[in-house]
Structure formats: C-alpha cells, structure tokens
Amino acid sequence: MEMTGEYRIPASRETVWEALNDPEILKACIPGCQSLEKTADDAMSAVVQAKVGPVKATFNGNVTLQNLNPPTSYTIAGEGKGGVAGFAKGSADVNLAEHEGETLLSYTVSAQVGGKLAQLGSRLIDSTAKKYAEEFFSCLSEKVAGKQPEGGSAAGADAAAPKAAAAAPETKPAEAAPAEAEPEQKPESEHHESTFSEIEHEVEERFHEAEERLETEAGRGTLGGPWMWGLIAFAIVIVLLLIFN
C-alpha cells in the first residue's frame, strides 16, 4: 500500500537534512526509541518500543538509506521485528523542498505489517500513528527551529526565528528567539511535555471514539475502510521509524 504526507518544518533544508541524519536528534525525537546507532554511512539500527492498541512490543529495526541525493531526497527502507507482536517493514521516499525559507518534507511510503500488529492493531494503528507522528515532527521542529546549518548558509538567524514561531504558534517567541545559544533544556522539555500531554489527551479521546465506533460498526464497513486507515497510519509510524535514520 502507498501513502503520502507532508510536514512543514521551520528550518532550512540543510538543517533538516542534517537533523534527519543526526542519530542524537532522531533518538531524542522518535517516541519510545531506546537506542539508535549508525552502523554504516547508509545504515542504522534502532530499538524502539511501540504500543499499538493492545500490542506492546520492542522492535529491533534495521534501516538502510538509498538513492541519497542530499539535501533533496533519499529513500529509506527498513524492517522492524517485534517478536510475537509481529513485524513491520516498508520503505519511504523522502523529499525536502525549500519553501519560503522553510522546509517542506514530503514522503511516499509503502508499508506492511504482520502478526499481532495486523490482527489486533489495524484499527488502533490510526490514532497511535498520529500520536507518534505529531510527537516526532514537533520534536524535530523544535530541535531544528533555532539551528543554523553548520558552516553557515544564506538563511539568516533573524529570519529563521520568527518563521519558526509562525510555524509552531504554540511555541512562545521568547523561547524560540534565543535559539542560537545552547538550547535551553528546561523550556524545551516543558513545551515538549505539554504538547505531549495534549496529544495524549487527544489520542485518548480518539481512542474512546474509535472504541465506540468499533462497538457499533465492527465489521460492518468493508475491508477497505478500517484496514486502509490502519495501514496508512502504520505507515506513518514506519516513516518515523525509518526517518529516524
């Protein structure tokens, strides 16, 4: 199955590219990431704990990067094994475009899940993946918002900061502005927490909604519906799992 999506990140393309290749940033931003290591220039391995509905598992994932065309595009292909919980595998074509000084990240994913993830998770993958995607991108945006591409670039610091603020309105300009200094852990983590709890709340709500829908509608729709949502949603998770590389 195929799915696409895009996300606007308030930083230059080079900065985003570097962040996407920075194991530390990825490790910090991938929800549930326990370890992430570069095993080669074009490969990473990671251990990520994910919970999809009733299925909680630790995935051992391996990812390779292909068709590298920095800082514009690449393809990431990977596979995660979660033991009894099943497996996930897929690939994503990731494209970075400059857009008004910011970066438009777009992706096309094909993904497959198996085992318990497919059996039990299909309807719950949706909300889980949204939660993970939000977490990852908001974290990534924050991390790169104030960062200059190393070695300098055309984009000025003064331009980057307000745009970051515009793109992430919930971020207080006061926090975003002094970004050139070493990142202030405290406000950032606070912000992270509040976003996280908001999302958690939203996910909870959506989960209950979904459960209610399941109660009344289980099986009444055709396959296409819920399964496709599930796959699409899971593909987002995969993108995340993959993008972390």
Binding site: Q112, V113, G114, G115, A118, Q119, L120, S122, R123, L214, A218, G219, R220, L223, P226, W227, G230
Partner: peptide, 21 residues
C-alpha cells in the same frame, strides 16, 4: 461476518471482534 485476509501478504486482518462482526 466476513473473514478477510490481506491480499498477497495473507495477514488475517479480521482477527478480533473489533474487525469481525
């Protein structure tokens, strides 16, 4: 009631009462 396998991969995607009515 409909028991559905994903085409090609053979994953049983109606494997709980959430999906099998």
């Amino acid at each position: 009631e409909g028991c559905v396998y994903e085409a090609d991969t053979g994953q049983l995607i109606t494997a709980s009462f959430q999906d099998y009515c």
